[in-house]
Design a protein around this nucleic acid. Structure first.
Length: 363
DNA sequence: GAGGCGTGGCG
DNA sequence: TCGCCAAGCCT
């Protein structure tokens, strides 16, 4: 099958089977002249970096409701953006999202640039996202390569070179395959195919519009592709978190993490450093101030990108007014916790402390 | 260019 | 329980 024929086959499939997504203009409406909002395409693409559609949907709704345009987002305090992003992960994306909105508002008069080259200059927009915005929002011819495209094309062309070494070849193949007409729909079609049919495990080849032309299907190699370089083993780090609870109000003591690095700029429960050599017997010595800290029964387990974490949780019930001031820390009332910029690992730590209670009275 | 950087769902 | 994986970017 030639490139033009393969592309047309997939576009016909897409016309019938495109997923309906909150940020997407359906192929039908697109043909009727509806154009995508570059702001919504950009926002969705950043949220979708290494993140599933299911996880993104509610956050996308929340963001577009709070900030309907890029200039609204540019006008928002960064702290509000971090609070809204809390739980979605990869928090540098939220910091760069805000920086990017500021730049578009200030340097591009609130209009997203429409070329890959200009888009690449913006914070948080790399090769994939620049190509995706250029083609989906502006109908530019661009080779969009994400994890789906890598998998689909590795199989279609039976590319046996392991990733990431195969990336340049895949990019060239995608550029050849992408049609001049409807390049944006084609990119979304390949990604939809990868998400719904040509899945990592147990692909549904019988339903695939490209089955007969697929080289890996012909040779029975579909499930062995793409090949990938072996991954490094994750170490386990240990630490302690200290949940101070105000006896009067139930407020808990929180503080801000440093602006960059792991969970940069997010809110946390005061705690120790996390290390493989952490001495659990001496954990309480890492408390932020002296108090009647009691070790909670349950530890918190959490996995980050490159290590596992086990946290011992300590709780102390005390009078906030009599607590030594902790630099930059604040007391947050129970009703306010939902709105804090707390990453998931910190919500787990709070839950472990608050569910069990003080261990003294029946709280 | 290799490593840092979250989270939730799945088998 | 655990490893794998999901629309990558930055340094």
């Amino acid at each position: 099958m030639c490139s033009a024929s393969a592309a047309q086959t997939l576009l016909t499939w897409y016309d019938r089977h495109a997923r309906r997504l909150p940020w997407r203009v359906s192929p039908r409406n697109r043909k009727l002249g509806e154009v995508p909002d570059p702001y919504r395409i950009w926002l969705s693409e950043v949220m979708l970096q290494q993140t599933t559609v299911a996880a993104v949907k509610d956050y996308f709704e929340k963001f577009t409701l709070a900030w309907p345009s890029v200039e609204d987002l540019a006008a928002a305090p960064e702290e509000d953006v971090m609070k809204a992003w809390a739980g979605l992960g990869y928090y540098s994306r939220a910091r760069n999202l805000k920086k990017c909105a500021d730049a578009v508002a200030a340097e591009f008069q609130g209009r997203f640039p429409d070329t890959e080259e200009d888009l690449l200059t913006l914070p948080g927009i790399g090769p994939y996202t620049a190509a995706a915005i250029a083609t989906i929002a502006f109908d530019r011819h661009a080779a969009v390569v994400d994890g789906n495209v890598e998998r689909v094309l590795s199989r279609f062309f039976q590319i046996e070179t392991p990733l990431p070494d195969a990336k340049p070849v895949i990019r060239a193949r995608m550029a050849d395959l992408t049609p001049q007409i409807r390049p944006g729909d084609f990119a979304q079609a390949v990604m939809d195919l990868g998400a719904t049919i040509c899945t990592p495990r147990r692909p549904a080849c019988a339903l695939c519009p490209w089955m007969t032309a697929c080289q890996a299907h012909s040779s029975g190699m579909v499930e062995t592709l793409p090949r990938k370089a072996p991954k490094k083993e994750k170490p386990t780090r240990y630490g302690a978190a200290f949940v101070a609870v105000d006896k009067e109000t139930g407020a808990v003591l929180l503080r801000r993490r440093p602006p960059s690095g792991l969970l940069g700029g997010m809110t946390e429960v005061p705690g120790s450093d996390w290390s493989e050599a952490f001495d659990r017997a001496d954990a309480v010595s890492g408390a932020p101030f002296p108090a009647a800290w009691t070790r909670q029964t349950a530890e918190v387990r959490h996995t980050f990108t490159h290590f596992h974490l086990r946290l011992d949780i300590f709780r102390a019930d005390l009078e906030a007014s009599g607590t030594p001031g902790l630099k930059g820390a604040w007391w947050s009332l129970p009703d306010m916790l939902d709105g804090e910029a707390l990453p998931t690992v910190m919500r787990k730590a709070l839950a472990a402390a608050l569910e069990q209670g003080s261990g003294k009275s029946g709280s």
